[in-house]
Structures are given as structure tokens and as C-alpha cells.
Design a protein around this nucleic acid. Structure first.
Lengths: 342, 342
DNA sequence: CAGTCGAGTGTTTGCGTTCACATTATCGCA
DNA sequence: TGCGATAATGTGAACGCAAACACTCGACTG
């Protein structure tokens, strides 16, 4: 049953298949790429030969001849962070569904621009026809511009290439949802633990948090900076625990919320009895925190899918592939929020 | 400053560089692949031309001519599970350090064998020179055998390519560490919430858990099955809460432990006062659970690194690249365990 | 001082495919 | 019954690079 190979141990080629099926290589090519214009009977003969020889298209050769690779590049932060993983799942799905392969390059969290470009170039050299940027990076530099001229790129959190394009997920809406929930519960003000400054999301959420407070005539307290990690959330929690009168906190990720709540508890502040906490993401563990996290869900998988579809559309020169998944943030109320103590 | 391109818009090729530098294409090739035997002065001239034209090696052409792609394939479960993400980080590192690119294919959690083979074939066609299997799969089938003859594959949890090779991380040691910790604390027996049956780890841990109990003359209670997700941990927790007299549980992942502990709390059983819990993995959030999880750490990143290095060594035909990262499991005692109530 | 070696460089060939075009079969319709 | 149109197939030439081999030249050997 093992496919018989040509005498030398080289893998069977189109020529071998053509010979066995009694057709030209061009016909084999047509059958393999499914581009029609082949009689059913002929196609069947070719397929039989393919099967017998165990032939498979040599991607490098095909790509050399056609100029296409059907490879999507992804640059991600080298981390086990939930958001990256979930984004990846969506990207993979969309890519596979459209016959693309995904090539990944990871860069350290606060990598230098050079490290980033290196990753970009590695993917480009590898033949990536488009690149999804899952890391915060300045698109306006000349170096980035020339690269993007050659190879289309898209940022996973944007709706288009244009650096001013609206975000795929409205980050301001996220902050507004969180802050208003807290305010509506009766809290007098809301403190904010932000994510890492390098990320666009961070700034947008901070601004919207501030704006929402001001809209209600509240003077915002200072932002407490952190960097997405649970450890940084813990540190922020200690800071907050030392400030008297804090009853509500908007923290920019669930992972930080875990650290924050732990620090609060250690300091004798109960959540939500003394302090209410709203975070962002709705990771799988959010529902199983103690208390279960009230959080604003970001549809990471959908974002990944959307980014991939966007890029594929651009590569192939049409406007859209199927419908873009909707990516509206959504407040999920659980047990980490409550009205302030009377 | 923008690199001048040849008149037609095609990307510059080796020929263009050769012409500009006044050498043969072969010399350009030698310079690009850094294989020496080129006079410093000549190399400099070539590099200058490369720079001026913005030339980059065309991977597909190079790979067609040389028969090498320097691509590593990875098949992972399409999930945001912590272990997969961390494994990926290690793989990326090792690959990049050795000049390899990583191509990923994701399959659903309980995908059919066909879906798996499809992913494998996609990577192979894409030119992967070796494939890391991050999913549980039967290596003994004929279909798998013929594939592995062509393309070396290794399972991320094993120490070598050999399907019977010992596990990279001693799963029995993990279970033993967990169970003995609980027993030494004074618990009379230890219940076990297992992971998904498809995974090798699951069976090994169950066996070692059982064995460790028997070695101390304890008859093991029935295993409570789960599937790695926090939800399944929660369900297992409800089951356990309904059983009187349970004081110690060994649960096969931190993520399940979150669910388990939540269910226990809801049922009025305190952790660790009423029930002690030891889990496995030591994910980033483990230290921030309430209570902080006592867990057996698995060095996922190192496992990923080791798998990649192993594969690269085999691809290149030498025995080892640098030292293999050590991958010993390690008990991390935090606050989810305590002696049984008097 | 002829012979040998090796570093540096060039020439030719082939990798396995697809593209553009040429050719041949097939069909419908007047 | 014949003619044009269209479908099915074949032919030759790239695609951009590295492998294999050939060549040149200076340095070193004995």
C-alpha cells in the first residue's frame, strides 16, 4: 500500500504524475490547483496517479513560478498572555478557511524597534504576503513605511491599515461601559489602573475613563500605571489599599485584576464590599476568580479572525470576504462590583 | 534614500546585485549565505549593492534550489489554554536562535484524525522540515508512520522522536510530588480530578496518583474525570462537595483548580481549611488565586525549547545543539494546602 | 624552479512549478 | 455539412537561486 516512489529517493514530481496519467504537466497543474477546464475523466486519471505516487505539490516551486505563497505572517509578543493566545486562535481559523498558512514570529515584550524589524523581515523573506501586527509599534517611521509598501500589514486592534482608522474594538466604549457601571452603582469616583503605555489601548482607555468622569462633573484621580501582568496589578493594589476612601477601580485587564484583588484582600479591603472592581477581557478564568470578575469582554478570537480576513482581502485585491465578525465590547456583570457601602 | 528598483517593478534579484557589484551571481549567493571564501573587499562591494537595491534573498527560489526551507511546523490545539501558549514561546525562541521560521497549524481540541492529518500535510506541503506535535495523537498508525518517514516529528511532551521515549517532564513525579505533599500534611487520602483522557499526561498522572496511595496502603477513591477547562473543574468541584469527608484533592491543572475551588466555596467548603488542593502547571495567575495555589510547576517554555532543539538537531543530522534545558517538575507550596482539621 | 595546493571567483545546469500562448477536440447552429 | 466559438490539452519558457564543477592566480613546498 505504500506509494511507490521513483527509483531515486527524490519525491515524486509533477512530471512523474503526468507520465503515469498520460497527460502533460500543465494538466496536472490545473487539476492540483482546481482551476477547472479539465474533463472529469482526465481529472480522475490524474488524481489516481497522484494517489498512487503519493505526489504533493512542492510549495517552493509553485511559489517561485506563480509568485504567490499563501502565507500570512503574524508578529506577536513573546508571552503567555491570554489575549495573544486567543487572537492567534482566530487568525488561524480565518487563515485555514481561506487556504493560507500562518507563519509566526515572536518578539520580546518591550523589544527594540530593530528586533521588531528583524521579525518583520524574517517573515517577509519567508514569503509572507501580508503581516498581522499583534504588538504595539509605530507605523509612521520611514523604515516601517517602506516595508508596508512591499508587504501589506495590519494591526490586530485596528479596523484598517490607516493609522488613524478606528479600533476594531472600541476601547473608549470599553472604558465608558466600565466607568458608567461603577458610577451607576453609586460610587462617587472611579480609580484607574492602566495597562502598559506602549499599547494604543492603554491611552484610549485612560482618556475615555477620564472623559466619562468629567462628563459627570467628577475630577479624575491620578492614573495608577501598570503593565498587564498580574504582578503589576498586585503592586497597583497595594498602592490603592494605602489610599483611604477608594471604593471603585477600573483595571485594564483581568490578569491585573487578579493581582489587584489579592493585594486588596491582604490589606483587609473586601471586594466588592469595600472596593468594587471592573476589569477588561473576560478571560476564561474571569468567572472563576474570587469574587467572579465583572469585566468588559473583548472578543479576541473575532478580532483575530477579522484581522486575517482584512489582510487576505487586501492581498487578493477584493473588498471583503464574507461578513466581518462583529467586535463590540460587552459588559459582563459578575460579583466584583456592588454599590458602595452606605 | 529609497532603494532604486530596476525599471520594471519586479523585486531586485541576485542578477541585479551581481551586475551592480561587478561579480557573478554565485559570489552574491556566497556572500548572502555567509559561507566564506570571499575576499573581504568583494564582500563589501556586494553588500553595498545589496543595500542600494534593497535586495533580499527570495526564500522560495533558494529553497527550490537548495532543498532546504528552514521551516519548523507546529501543530497545536486551537485554544487559549496557558500551556499551549507557553510552549509556543519556547519553540519560537529556539527556532529563531537557530535561524528557523515557525509555521503553525491549529486543530480543534478533539479533532478527528483526518483533521489532524490535514494539518500535518498542510505544514509538510508548506515545506516544514520537521513538525512538533502539541496535540495528543496516535503515532503508531500506518498513516502516521509514512508521514514521519518523510518528515521528522516529535511530540512536545517527549524527550525524543521515538514515540516510546520517556516524557520530557516526568508526569509520575508530578503526581507523586502532589500526593505526597498532601499525605505528609496528614490527609488520610487524596482524591483526583483528572485531565482530558486524550492526553498521555492524564493517564500517567492517574496511575502515579493511584500507585502513590497504594504504596502507603491507601485504597484510592474513584477518579473524577474532567477536561482541563475551568468549567470542568467547577463541575468536578460540585461532585466533590457532595461527597462527605473529602479533605484533599489533586487536580491536574491550575485552570481546573480555579473552577474546583470556586465550586467548593459555593458549597461552603473552605480551601484549605476544609479541603486542601494541589494542582499542576503554575500558570502566571496561580499565585493570585484565592487562596494562592499550591501547584507542581511544569516548565512549558523549556519543554518547547527542548522540543525545537531536538527536532533541529535531527534535521541537521547532529546530535545536540547546546545543552537541553532541564525540565524537572517542582512543587510550589502556597496557600491552597494545609493539614486536615483536627 | 617546477609542481602543488588552496583561496577566490565564474559558468553551467537543474530545482518543480506556473504562465502565456499554441494547438487540437467538441459542440451548436445555420 | 461546414464554420466559428469554446472547451480541453499541450509546448516552451521563465521564476530566482544554489550545487557542482572549472578555472585563475599567488604562495608555498621540496
Amino acid at each position: 500500500m505504500s506509494p511507490r516512489r521513483p527509483k531515486d529517493d527524490r519525491a515524486p514530481s509533477q512530471v512523474d504524475v503526468a507520465k503515469l496519467a498520460g497527460v502533460s504537466t500543465q494538466t496536472v497543474s490545473r487539476v492540483m490547483s482546481g482551476q477547472g477546464n479539465v474533463r472529469g475523466e482526465t481529472a480522475r486519471r490524474v488524481l489516481a496517479a497522484v494517489d498512487e505516487l503519493g505526489y504533493r505539490v512542492h510549495a517552493a516551486a509553485a511559489s517561485l513560478a506563480s509568485g504567490r505563497t499563501r502565507v500570512l505572517g503574524v508578529i506577536v509578543v513573546s508571552t503567555d498572555r491570554y489575549s495573544s493566545a486567543a487572537l492567534g486562535v482566530g487568525i488561524q481559523q480565518a487563515a485555514a478557511a481561506n487556504g493560507y498558512t500562518v507563519s509566526t514570529a515572536a518578539v520580546a515584550d518591550h523589544a527594540s524597534t530593530e528586533a521588531f524589524f528583524e521579525a518583520f523581515d524574517r517573515l517577509e523573506r519567508q514569503g509572507a504576503e501580508g503581516i498581522i501586527l499583534g504588538v504595539p509599534v509605530e507605523l509612521e517611521s520611514p523604515a516601517m513605511r517602506t516595508r508596508m509598501e512591499r508587504t501589506p500589514a495590519t494591526r490586530s486592534e485596528r479596523t484598517s491599515l490607516d493609522p488613524d482608522a478606528p479600533l476594531a474594538v472600541d476601547q473608549r466604549a470599553i472604558a465608558r461601559l466600565a466607568v458608567e457601571h461603577l458610577l451607576d452603582l453609586g460610587h462617587e469616583t472611579v480609580w484607574h489602573v492602566s495597562g502598559d503605555d506602549y499599547w494604543t489601548e492603554t491611552q484610549q482607555r485612560s482618556e475615555a475613563w477620564e472623559q466619562t468622569l468629567r462628563d459627570r462633573g467628577i475630577v479624575p484621580p491620578p492614573v495608577i500605571p501598570a503593565d498587564w501582568t498580574p504582578e503589576s496589578g498586585y503592586r497597583a493594589g497595594r498602592t490603592i489599599a494605602a489610599i483611604p476612601g477608594v471604593t471603585a477601580v477600573f483595571v485594564s485587564s483581568d490578569e491585573m485584576a487578579f493581582g489587584l484583588i489579592r493585594a486588596l484582600h491582604e490589606a483587609g479591603r473586601a471586594v466588592p464590599d469595600d472596593v468594587s472592581v471592573v476589569s477588561v477581557d473576560d478571560i476564561a478564568l474571569a468567572a472563576y476568580a474570587s469574587p467572579a470578575l465583572t469585566t468588559v469582554r473583548q472578543p479576541f478570537e473575532d478580532m483575530g479572525r477579522a484581522a486575517a480576513l482584512r489582510l487576505i482581502a487586501q492581498i487578493e485585491g477584493h473588498d471583503a470576504i464574507g461578513e466581518m465578525p462583529s467586535t463590540d465590547p460587552q459588559l459582563v456583570v459578575r460579583s466584583s462590583t456592588a454599590p458602595p457601602r452606605a
